[in-house]
Amino acid sequence: MHRPHPPPAGLRTVTGPLEPARVRGPVLAHEHLALDLSRDADRAAVLGAAHRDSVTGELAALREEYGLSLVIELTCRGMGRDARALAEVSDRSGVAVVAATGWYYEPFHPREVNGTSVEELARLLTLEIENGLDSTAVLPGVIGEVGSHGDLPSEPEARTLTAAAHAASATGLSLATHAQLGRGGLRQLELLTRAGLAPHRVSIGHQDLLDAPAVHRELAAAGAYVAFDTVGKENYQSDEVRLRLLCALLEAGHADRVLLSCDVSRHGYLLAEGGKGYGHLFRSFLPRVRAAGADEDLVDLLTRRNPLRFLAAASAEEL
């Protein structure tokens, strides 16, 4: 394994390095712009070439209307990642995109995970981080969304999470998780920190699907980011409940630990197909957050400064 070293200077986007100070508008902290999670029972979990114009058009419109500056794209190995498509979307939309590496939760693990040691898995991730994704020169800027399902990671999930932590330590990148339906986040954080990763370099995913304010407070108090990243997915959780959970975490003094996004992961979520799109956070949810008492500085913290600090693996004082 490589010896740990500081985080890379600036942000790594699919079109090259970017200084955090140049990101003046909001960031979507967990999205998908190109993926394929289709299985026999779920053929709609795709964002492919046929949807590229719709994806690009949405991002460009959000840049114009709301100043959208950056998308953290958490499609990783086994999820149909397409680095060339991400570079195309970023270039055409004018929105910076950060790509990812890692392994999703067990049902989507590729064969390469089977029986492979933590050390070898970490080496595979480190090679992608150093050399580029999908036979391109596109460098990932984050590890994620590395996943588990249930209250405890399965044995393969424990290996991939541990390997991701080792790769994060070796390369300086931060790490975002997939906690299926919000469950198991505390165990994820325990495993990652036991493997040597500092909590402030970890975002625990899908916590807005878990109606457990005490868990959110515990994660935030430990120093991890708490991702409310499925905003608008009302078939899983209502935005009314999301707002209540968010307000509870803010009132507990943890505004600097929150990340927000919509997790568009099916073509049916796109505006062109009648969905709420990537902009639901800006059009619908943030107005409700403001109505609940948030001022513009707090909104900027939630939507810009927090995700930038997470990506840069920085403390609150550094950005």
Rank of each mutant, 00 (worst) to 15 (best):
T126N: 03
R81V: 06
R194W: 12
E119T: 03
S169R: 14
N114K: 14
V113S: 06
L125T: 02
H206D: 13
H206I: 07
Q207S: 07
L86I: 11
V138L: 05
G102V: 02
L124I: 04
E145K: 02
R183C: 06
P153Y: 02
L210S: 03
A222Y: 08
F228L: 11
R217P: 11
L152M: 14
V95G: 07
A167H: 09
L219A: 03
G94H: 06
A100W: 01
L139P: 05
H109F: 08
G184L: 01
V89W: 03
L191M: 09
L189K: 10
A164N: 04
H109D: 04
A167T: 07
T160I: 04
E218Y: 01
A137S: 15
R92G: 08
I204T: 00
E120W: 09
P140Y: 15
L191R: 00
G115P: 09
A163P: 05
S169K: 12
R84M: 11
E106C: 00
L121M: 11
Q180A: 14
P213L: 12
V146Y: 08
A163K: 01
L124G: 01
G184S: 01
T162M: 01
V97Y: 02
L124V: 06
Q207K: 10
L191G: 03
L192M: 05
L124Y: 07
A220P: 07
Y225H: 13
A220M: 11
L197N: 13
N114R: 15
G172E: 06
E120F: 11
S154N: 15
S93R: 09
I204F: 11
Y225R: 13
N114S: 14
T101C: 15
P153D: 00
F228C: 10
L86N: 11
A221G: 15
A212S: 08
A122D: 05
E120I: 14
D151V: 12
H206S: 10
L161M: 11
L161Q: 05
H206P: 09
S169T: 07
A100Q: 04
I143D: 06
H178C: 10
P156I: 03
T171L: 07
T101S: 12
Y104T: 04
E119F: 03
A198L: 04
L191N: 01
L209V: 08
R187D: 15
R187F: 14
V113L: 00
T193P: 09
T116S: 03
T136S: 15
L86F: 12
A176V: 13
E106M: 04
A122L: 02
V118C: 05
V97P: 01
D211M: 00
L219W: 02
G132H: 11
P153G: 02
N114L: 15
E145H: 05
G182L: 03
H109P: 09
A224G: 12
A195D: 12
A195S: 07
P107F: 07
T160P: 03
S90K: 12
A165K: 07
S203G: 13
E155F: 14
A222N: 09
A221K: 13
Y225W: 10
